[in-house]
Each structure stands twice: as C-alpha cells, then as structure tokens.
Design a protein around this nucleic acid. Sequence first.
DNA 1: GCTGAAATGTCAATTAC
DNA 2: GTAATTGACATTTCAGC
Lengths: 176, 176
Amino acid sequence: MSRVPALPPPEAAAAATGACPALDDFDRHLLAFVQQDCTLSAEHMGAAIGLSASAVQRRLKRLRAQGVIQAQVAVLDPARVGRGVTLLAGLQIDRDNYPVLAALRPRLAQDAAVQQAWYVTGQNDLMVVVQVANMAAYDAWCAALMQALPQIGRITTQVVIESLKRGLVVPVEAPV
Amino acid sequence: MSRVPALPPPEAAAAATGACPALDDFDRHLLAFVQQDCTLSAEHMGAAIGLSASAVQRRLKRLRAQGVIQAQVAVLDPARVGRGVTLLAGLQIDRDNYPVLAALRPRLAQDAAVQQAWYVTGQNDLMVVVQVANMAAYDAWCAALMQALPQIGRITTQVVIESLKRGLVVPVEAPV
DNA sequence: GCTGAAATGTCAATTAC
DNA sequence: GTAATTGACATTTCAGC
C-alpha cells in the first residue's frame, strides 16, 4: 500500500496562502541552487534535498508567481561582447533641482550602457554602474547625460581596474 | 540524400575555431534574448530571428563553451528573502599596506553578504555592494571586516534608498 | 473522532533538447 | 531519440469542529 510516507510540510501551508511568503528549508535550498545555476534539472535538485521532481517544479513555479524569483537570465562576459570597460559614476544633483530625479528614472532605465543604478545617501545622490567599450565612449556618455540634464551638478567617476566579484546572488539563510 | 540545405554560416566557422569569438547578428540577437529570459525555447527564439531550433541550440551551446555566456541564473527579490538593505561600501587601504588586497580577494569571494566588488581608481581602492537584513547587520559586517584586516583605513558607506535599475545586462550591439 | 485543505509521490503525455 | 517538464490522480498529514 503505502510506499513512501509523505513528509511533513512544516510551515508550507502558511506560504501557500499567497500573502506571506514564508519560505521553508526546501524553498531556501532550491533558491540557493537556482541562483548558481538555473539549468539544473528538477530531478537533480530534488534528489539532493529529498523531494520528487514534481514537488520541486511546483515550488519553483510558486516562487516565480510570488515574485521571489524575479527572472532567469544568462550572464555574459562583458569583455567578450565588446563592453569590457566598467565605471562607477557618482551623480550629484543641485539642491534646487531635485525634481530632475523623476526625469532620470526613465532615462537610466532605457540607457543600455547603464547596468545598475541606485538612489543613495552620502556624497552622491545616485550611483550608476556603466558598461562601455572604452573611455571615449564613457566620455561621450557623460557629455550626453549632462547635456540632457543640466541639473546634474557633477559626475564623479571611479574606473574599475578589476572586477573581483560579480553577480546578483542574495544569501538565503534561515530566519533564525 | 540531403533534405535541408545547410544554412550558410557567415563567420560562424571562424568563431567555432574557439579562438576568436566573432559574433554575428544571430548571436547578438540570441544573447539579447537570453539576457532577458533564458527560459525562452530555442524554437521561439529561432522563429523570431529566422533560424531553426537546432541552429539556435548549436549557437547557444557554442556561446556557453566559449565563455561568452558565463552562467544562467535565477534573480531573486532581495527583500523577499530577508536581505532588503543594500549598501555601497568604499574601502580605502593604507598606502603601505597594499599587499592586503591579496588577502581581501578570497574573503570577499566567500562573504555571502558581498554581492559585487570592484577594484577601482579614485577616492576608494575598492567598491563593494553589500546586501544585508538591516543596518545592525551592516555595522557588524564592517566591524568584522576591519578587525580581520586592520590595513583597511576607512570604510565610506552609501546607503541605497532605492534601486532604480538592477541587473547584469550588457548591451550587445554590432561591432561597427 | 471525523471532515476538508494542502502537499507529496507516482505515472502518463507532452514538449523541448 | 532521449531527457525533462507538465498535468492528473491517489495518498498522507495537519487544522478545525
């Protein structure tokens, strides 16, 4: 009759309500896996943590639907596609021109050279990671940005000599 | 005998040699696709750019083998896994202690809170993107780092108020 | 002690590689 | 052609009455 005793779902019930994304240990293990390699088969991951392939698929589907998994993407080597130069641009906005931040948002989003952008506290108002082919391209990028948005008072540049760590991996530990 | 006329590989032959990764328009289109969503089927992408599914799979396999595609990963929402606070830490190393950079490299690589790290020019020697649960955790992170490596003269912190753009997408345009 | 919801595992069928 | 994903169904566990 019974072949395998169904394993007890700890707080899985609460997670399925949809509202509160309470992740259990299975979820955390799966998230750790797919953050490193999302091409692993459900069977492979399930065998590693003690779940069937179907259960793994269901959980990943739920995590995608809940927005915990935002996307599954390929990471390229920038140098191999002709964008080997990375820079960190610190943007300072004049005190009286803070509304320009609203205009900056769509511009940064559409700008292919902009890889990441944060609105921050401190010396700069915005920090932008820019990926270009060479310094001339960066110079042109700065010129175009400052011409389009004169409210930008200053751009402080930090040239990346070497990228020591690159990724969007977020640690998924137990909530203690 | 022959059923389907072998499709003309433009500079694919040169690329397949392994040495020179000359990307053609098909490759660039595929890279643009998979950077946004690597779960798209080969058939879907092939139909969009005029290639068979098999051809798409061959090209993607080659791009992975060449290292153009470094990885395929899931991107998580940091807030949904309890790491909603992002900071940019600027590390300054004392002039006489530059060898500490060698010790920093493995430490940053193993530190789960460190998402990205660049060795840069300018005011700071290193810029580090740190992802933590709250400011207390960041304080502890700084304390641990400075205790482990006293050669770090100063850590300048920029707190991320809002992430305007997040990703590792690299534009893949024609070489021109 | 019984009933209902939720999650798992197994199997078959579809799809993609 | 092979492997993996998807959907359907029976079974088990837990919460509530």
